[in-house]
């Protein structure tokens, strides 16, 4: 561990992000905030939203918010292609299994 590695040392990773402005982060923050309020409104029983609509709307909103955090805050959007897909693709098949398994559990109740 060297003592001559101050935060100010320009590194490859640093210069990559140095040009990034704060604006996209603040836009994402605003969207995350707005979507959270929307989620609570959809979920409140007093709003009288139908179960089917409520479930699909909430899942879409949550996945959108999660994707925004991963792509912008975690920089996956500007990450190298191999890394980006190595992270994102492994979720596709388990998600499919999850849908099948949960649907099957519900089906047996009928």
């Amino acid at each position: 561990m060297s003592t001559d590695a101050p935060t100010s040392a320009p590194t490859a990773a640093a210069t990559e992000h140095a040009a990034h402005s704060r604006r996209p982060y603040l836009v994402i923050f605003g969207l995350l905030f707005a979507f959270t309020i929307l989620e609570v409104l959809v979920a409140l029983p007093s709003m009288g939203v139908g179960r089917g609509f409520k479930v699909s709307a909430l899942i879409i909103l949550a996945l959108t918010k999660a994707a925004m955090v991963a792509l912008w805050f975690m920089h996956l959007k500007s990450e190298f292609k191999v890394l980006r897909w190595s992270v994102l693709l492994p979720f596709a098949f388990p998600a499919l299994y999850a849908i099948v398994l949960i649907a099957e559990a519900g089906w047996r109740l009928l």
């Binding site: 101050p6 979920a43 999660a66």
Partner: peptide, 30 residues
């Protein structure tokens, strides 16, 4: 700590936020 170390820490923290977004929906809202 250099910029790379801070970025790696950031990845962990954003992940904790990301997971909470999903937990909040599935456990609390649905």
């Amino acid at each position: 700590a250099d910029a790379n170390e801070i970025e790696i820490l950031g990845l962990f923290w954003h992940f904790v936020d990301l997971i909470w977004i999903l937990v909040f929906t599935f456990v609390y809202l649905l």
